[in-house]
């Protein structure tokens, strides 16, 4: 159970992160706000409650790892890393600028705290598998988290990796699916339905938990459950809203890869700050 003050802390942090996302993408003039807003609460739960990390030592061997397989949600990850203290919050304004440490998609060589370079969909789970295998091999107790988009599940490599993770009994691996229901061309169920996601992962040998991806209580309970699961990797299918928190962006496919104008950003910030 989450204590009241913990819940408030996480909710306030999520609000802050969402504001960063809006501000960053507005300054950059491009980026992916929709899918960043939908996964914000998951990232906040992981970084501000769950993960064993040390922002002063981003390459600490025993740290928990996080792979943002849906790399286009980079603004959310950058905002979280900045708030966590991996780099100054000021840096967020340089998103997508030439020479910036904050690339359009996460870059482990440029950004402290980024554990894996991603951006080409479908590749993150494989890398997470490798990290989890290494953990087992070295007898380390760190955990590996990976966040996938729901449209991303259309990539075959995800299922190659899903099969392998179950085969290697990677119970130190937890995957999240940001199930917001939208991809560039439209609703996932129109474009290419990956449904029923839960059944697919079950058939591929995973422990499956279904939650509301904006409810901290549920997110954290699911993580706790995953940690107790032995012999199987766990996937947490988090039902979310694309563009969450910004009324005009919510469930609007257009906001997948478009930045708000300064005016729109002001409106969004107002709504977020309530």
């Amino acid at each position: 159970m989450l204590k009241k003050e913990e819940l408030v802390y996480l909710q306030e942090m999520a609000k802050k992160i969402r504001c960063h996302i809006i501000e960053m993408t507005a300054v950059a003039g491009s980026g992916h706000p929709g899918g960043s807003l939908s996964c914000t609460d998951i990232l906040v739960a992981l970084y501000f409650r769950e993960m064993r990390i040390d922002p002063h030592n981003p390459v600490w061997e025993d740290r928990d790892r996080f792979v943002l397989s849906k790399g286009h949600a980079a603004p959310a990850l950058y905002a979280v890393l900045a708030e966590k203290g991996y780099f100054p919050i000021e840096e967020l304004k340089t998103l997508r600028k030439t020479g910036s440490m904050l690339q359009g998609h996460p870059d482990m060589k440029k950004t402290p705290g980024v554990d894996m370079t991603t951006g080409s969909l479908g590749q993150g789970l494989s890398a997470a598998n490798g990290m989890a295998i290494a953990g087992k091999l070295d007898g380390k107790d760190y955990r590996v988290y990976v966040l996938l988009g729901d449209g991303e599940l259309e990539e075959g490599q995800v299922w190659e990796a899903a099969m392998a993770a179950a085969h290697y009994k990677l119970d130190n691996l937890t995957a999240f699916v940001d199930h917001n229901g939208l991809q560039i061309d439209g609703p996932i169920t129109d474009v290419m339905s990956p449904e029923i996601i839960e059944e697919k992962f079950k058939a591929f040998g995973w422990h499956v938990i279904d939650i509301n991806g904006h409810d901290f209580e549920e997110i954290i309970n699911a993580i706790e459950q995953a940690k107790k699961m032995k012999g199987k990797p766990t996937v947490i299918v988090a039902n979310t809203v694309k563009g969450k928190g910004v009324p005009y962006m919510e469930n609007e496919v257009d906001w997948h890869g478009k930045a708000p104008t300064q005016e729109q950003a002001q409106e969004a910030l107002k709504a977020l700050r309530g």
Partner: peptide, 28 residues
Amino acid sequence: PERFFNLGIAEQNLMGTAAGLATCGKIP
């Protein structure tokens, strides 16, 4: 045997997994 991993007929996952192992200090 403990340092060998057969990933099945799945070459994309093979390379991705190798990348992940390398980030943890292994030489895959």
